[in-house]
Design a protein around this nucleic acid. Structure first.
Lengths: 145, 145
DNA sequence: GGCTATTCAGTGCAGATGCAATTATTGTGA
DNA sequence: TCACAATAATTGCATCTGCACTGAATAGCC
């Protein structure tokens, strides 16, 4: 039966990833933010103020897109832009309002994860997560051509 | 240590999924098609002619987007549109040219998967894939609110 | 110190996408 | 049979996104 597309890893990964994102976005609708915005908030909450260049790989979004995204988020009062030490650099920081919002959303995200893996043991979930990290690293070999 | 966003399942899934897609898209560039187009071709190759409604959940793409996508693919001579039995329905089918293209791309996709999981045993890969399917099913519980 | 290269962010533009409304066809109940 | 509901695909519109280019600031080299 050779190669089954619907049984391939890229397909299965994309399918479950997109699905989870879609479902989460529906809940986010009440808070008037998008999925990438949530990811930015969550990263800033965890890692503290970041430059766009550093934020980009963490949220897997192009810098140009991120730049515009931050503009919108600033208008919403969720983050602030400041020019610190380096004049080229911009430091993106959570505002108290943004911090409060991400605080409210974290339980929701946790619930999504819990439902997704409710049929697995803790050890299995741990293995799965480490596997996803390893695969991400393995993909580096494809990067340089 | 409470909740770590970068250690959460949705984040890890999205990150590796998007990354794999980006890398694959780079290779697809030589063939002048996009990632969703490849997915449509692969599904049609495996499952045979499909309606838009059936295709949509399989490629995780909105029907409206799919409709326009098929228009472009038809112009490229990769697929054909036909109105069969039901007058409302459209049957999307691979052309010989589309079939030849997907045939060329399948080894490439297989290589991507192989590199991604090269540090895992066959049994581990099998478990991982079944886990991704189960999670996708578990997410149904979040669908209906 | 001054010139060039590099780094970082922002913009113009074209294409992709989703939601909502529209059109066309089929199914159904009185 | 006829009106009305349901299904399938398409289109209008606003938004999102990435690529390529531009602008601004710093670093490195002579």
């Amino acid at each position: 039966m050779s190669y089954r597309f619907t049984g391939s890893l890229p397909y299965l990964l994309n399918r479950v990833g997109v699905r989870m994102g879609e479902l989460f976005l529906q809940r986010l609708h009440d808070f008037d933010i998008t999925l990438p915005m949530y990811r930015v908030l969550a990263i800033l909450k965890q890692e503290g103020p970041q430059r766009l260049t550093d934020l980009s790989p963490m949220v897997t979004v192009e810098i140009s897109t991120l730049s515009r995204l931050v503009t919108v988020m600033k208008k919403k009062g969720l983050v602030s832009r400041t020019r610190p030490d380096d004049g080229r650099t911009v430091s993106i920081m959570l505002t108290p309002s943004g911090d409060a919002l991400v605080q409210k959303l974290m339980p929701l995200a946790a619930e999504f994860e819990a439902v997704g893996v409710e049929t697995f043991s803790d050890a299995e979930v741990a293995w799965l997560k480490s596997a996803l990290k390893i695969i991400h690293t393995n993909l580096d070999k494809l990067e340089a051509r």
